[in-house]
């Protein structure tokens, strides 16, 4: 039951993109087509889950015992940057088709604030390891859901007749606002 609350809360109620404003850059950047949205979601799920596990272990077994929690930000971002590189190398060796599919999105992920954000949220929410994993996966699904719905909307937007100044990003932002409003319907459920 506890896990169900974490999952539902992360995907719908506190959607990472539409409610917490994390990962806006890829949300606006790679949401032109549904297919690229799916690729990005795959890459984010992969890295976010591993990053949450690794940063959790580092916090619990290195930063806390040594009493150096003020190094949290620096150590996390270095771990994430190294992790993205490693995932890229391993994926290239083990599964070329998967690398083909996710490859271009991986370097972008280092500066995706959703990854670092989830790693920090795991600590501030005081989750245990299993809850952290569930939380990371649920947030990745929430990210994917928002991204894919948004990409679907944007594909239709190209055909709309808009005032010149509104074309492109401004219209996309307004649509994101409407989408966010739709997700607010879930508020208070958890």
């Amino acid at each position: 039951m506890e896990y169900a609350i974490i999952v539902f809360g992360a995907i719908f109620v506190n959607n990472i993109v539409l409610n917490q404003f994390l990962g806006i850059c890829p949300f606006l950047g790679v949401s032109n087509k549904v297919s690229t949205g799916i690729g990005m979601t795959g890459a984010v799920t992969f890295v976010m889950t591993i990053a949450a596990i690794v940063t959790y272990l580092i916090y619990k077994y290195v930063l806390l015992p040594l009493d150096i929690t003020y190094l949290q930000t620096i150590s996390y971002i270095l771990v994430i940057a190294a992790l993205v590189q490693m995932v890229e190398i391993i994926l290239k060796k083990i599964s070329p088709p998967l690398y083909q599919a996710l490859g271009v999105y991986l370097p972008l992920i280092t500066t995706n604030c959703a990854i670092l954000g989830v790693a920090l949220l795991v600590i501030s929410n005081d989750f245990n390891l299993m809850e952290s994993v569930v939380f990371a996966i649920a947030n990745a699904i929430g990210f994917g859901l928002a991204l894919i719905i948004f990409a679907g909307l944007r594909e239709h937007m190209d055909l709309m007749d808009l005032p010149k100044g509104m074309k492109g990003v401004p219209a996309a932002l307004v649509i994101a606002g409407l989408l966010s409003m739709a997700f607010m319907g879930f508020a208070g459920l958890v």
Binding site: N19, P163, K164, G165, V174, A176, G177, L178, M184
Partner: peptide
């Protein structure tokens, strides 16, 4: 004040700036 307002306000603000720039 709520999250949707952030997206919508920024959208219109950027549209306004785009208009000025053009």
């Amino acid at each position: 004040i709520l999250p949707p307002g952030a997206f919508i306000a920024l959208g219109f603000l950027i549209a306004f700036i785009n208009h000025l720039r053009k």
